[in-house]
Design a protein around this nucleic acid. Sequence first.
RNA 1: GGGUGUAUAGCUCAGUUGGUUAGAGCGUCACGUUGACAUCGUGAAGGUCACUGGUUCGAGUCCAGUUAUACCCACCA
Length: 888
Amino acid sequence: MSNAEMPKAYESSAVEEKWYSWWESNGLFHGRPDPAKKPYSIVIPPPNVTGILTMGHVLNNTLQDILARWHRMEGDEVCWFPGTDHAGIATESRVEKYLREKEGTSRDELGREEFVKRVWSWREQYGGTIIRQLRKLGTSCDWERERFTMDEGLSDAVKQVFVQLYEKGYIKRGKRMINWCPVSRTALSDEEVVYKEENGKFYHFKYPLSDGSGFLIVATTRPETMLGDTAVAVPIGDPRYRHLVGKTVDLPLTDRKIPIIEDPHADPEKGTGCVKITPAHDPNDFEVGLRHNLDFINVFTKDAKMNERAGKYAGLDRFECRKQVVADMERLGLLDKIEDLVHAVGYSERGGVPVEPMLSEQWFVKMDELAKPAIEAVRNGTIRFYPERWTKTYFHWMENIKDWCISRQIWWGHRIPAWYNEKNEVYVGVNPPEGDNWRQDEDVLDTWFSSWLWPFSIMGWPKDTPEQKYFYPTNDLVTGPDIIFFWVARMIMAGYEFKGAPPFRNVYFTSIIRDDLGRKLSKSLGNSPDPLDVIARYGADALRFSIIYIAPIGMDIRYANEKCEIGRNFANKLWNACRFRKMQGAVSENFRNLAGIDPAKLAPDEKWILAWTDRTIRSAREALEGFKFHQAAHDIYEMVWSTFCDWFIESCKPRLYGDPEAKKQTLAVLDFVLWKLLRLLHPFMPFVTEELAHQMDFLKEDESIMYAHYPETLEKLGLGALADGLDTVLGQVEDKFELVRAGRNLRISYDIAPGRKLKYHIKAATDAQETFLRNETGNLKFLLNAEEVTVSQEDYRAEDGTGAPSALVNAGAIFLPLKGVIDVEAETAKLNKQKKELLGWIKGSEAKLGNPGFLAKAPPKVVEDAKTHLAEMKEKLARVEEALKSLN
RNA sequence: GGGUGUAUAGCUCAGUUGGUUAGAGCGUCACGUUGACAUCGUGAAGGUCACUGGUUCGAGUCCAGUUAUACCCACCA
């Protein structure tokens, strides 16, 4: 590195570009089985291939990158497996939209084969944008291992799993009630339905008894379904209706007569107790239909319009039909009343419209047996959740798990490996059956049917690969709690079923990011920042650090772009600390180990900063081990900014400008600490730390901080001797800094320009303090910007006997002698305020110590501390009173 | 209807197993171009820890209840 001066401010963009391509082209992200090292692996939650980077991805991938980089520095063999998900329905509709807008064609016009081809080429051209964007964030994924859920190998895994579960009897085909999305025209799993509270209407209809003896009143929120009614149910043994059971009603608007049946589904407490039964369009009614062998009349088309079974309503949209049915019923005098009610309506997550419960032939996976080992694994701690409370959500779902509807009536996805022949036989196998009388099932599998295999399919399963032996199970999973059912739970089940082992050991659930008003980020609100813009403006390190720094543990994050100033300013602070250091000359030769330094000769400040560095190393590592990223970020931030820059660097300046030996020593300590701080910070801010490590010559040109060892404490480095006698010195240095603060305060309260040189007098409280502070006078002069600092155990007295403004601190008192400017009244007031405070403390302490209960029951240590504290307060009070006396 | 969070300074949040009279950042205010940094520095003001009750020598911290708020689950015709 030349001596060219570093710029005054850190410029992120060029630096980030440079290092990322250097890391990647040198293969520093690549992980390979290495028996000599401990494996550490993560699989990325595969983003949709159609996706673009959002703030959610930023948070999620920053956390994974912190883990990956940290473990790499700990010496583990790290592999972070990246890739994308084919996202069946989402991608299919994305490409459909593209074809409509750009080519004026459609899926149906192109036909299946051609359409699927188009999706692949769309993916070639536009897909995977997010993968390129992730690089801007600095993510250290092993790109050589990037996979796509539709890759050949992953498709093999899907087929293998399907066949295996089919042969085990866990996968079955059957006609059941499913959630139908009329927009995507496919079945959905229960998890893909989101419920929204809505203000709806509750329509009460009169159904005339066929014998003309009156009406039964039924209520519904969905009048259009009455066209598919095939019974009216009444409660079992209900005296109001008992005599009607077995008779029929004339179903209005149709020419059908439908039976009146007794069924427990009818609740006598609700409404009239009578319920219309639509077995083809309601899950409960379906059950009733089975029990009573009723007809199942489907009145909807695949896009939820009325079909020919709806008679004159055929062709109408379901909501239009609803209006007309109500109008017609009213006209016929069969509308009893309409009530308002709030109810939950199930919407298709992707389609954005209410789902239609429909009776349909689909493939299902029986989940209850698969769930058993997965429940046990979380219960016995083999797999741990952070925050732990998510286990409750997990258990609740797993213990009530339902069959999983896995077939989708779309074209983009893994086609179901089942074939049928004319004799209606079914063949299920990894490879197509012999002979040409077989046609393959038209449906594809739910996207999640490939995602749940991700942790091992990405490593080559079902083939036997060294990667699986070495990297499976993975260590940590970082994901959002919104996909705990979709993905996390199912991966655990798949892990046990197909690998006989958990897919990961720890699951860290990220927070949800909201805007600064607490609203969810969404495109339509326009409150969703583009991370690439933010990176361009503030830098990737700034974004990464800021988002971790502001992320409260287990709660939603309030994000606004301005918050990236935290990270940007911090990077700049670090940059300038290094810039300052560079101005002092070349890096110390012993910056790695402080070789040749005599522990006995360390200045108090130097011991103090070494102690703080150790403390921070311990707390940061402990925080990372417990997935407390936010806390690690805060600890390091505080250490760098306040402890290192504000106090250590400032305080060491006098030594830099004096004795060359002292300068050499202090620079060595500074370098030693700085190099540790850069490494501590690297997982959080990879770019600026790599740049600075090179700028400072901590690394050779071909070395990367990515593989520098994560900092260890002095003791672990075998440098324990440097920490000898730290305890006493620590308190003295802290007291010294408190004294400095008090001195600056005096200056300000007397309104003296900071530039003006002053004299201070310090009254030391003890002999030890006096000795210590005398040795520090040079240092104190600098920190206080004073031309002279005197130390004794006496109060300050001017020649004419007047006192001076002063402040009391632990170390003693600091006086600011100012000729004739002492404001006796103000000083008295200040001291009286302090006295009042002290008396409060003393009163409280004495009360506590006078309490027999406290003395008897509190731990001895606490009692001892209280006594010490009281003594200190009393001693301080005595000093305040003395000072008060001297004023008069 | 069940379940899970959250409630501490103007704002956003820390606060470890209960132990001095509760902290940080931002914002506000005052002062400042001291040779790393105005993306900065030195200071100041600002809180009956949502409410009620309980346990305890001692509660922001534990327990019960209340209120507010957010989210998740559930086939309420």
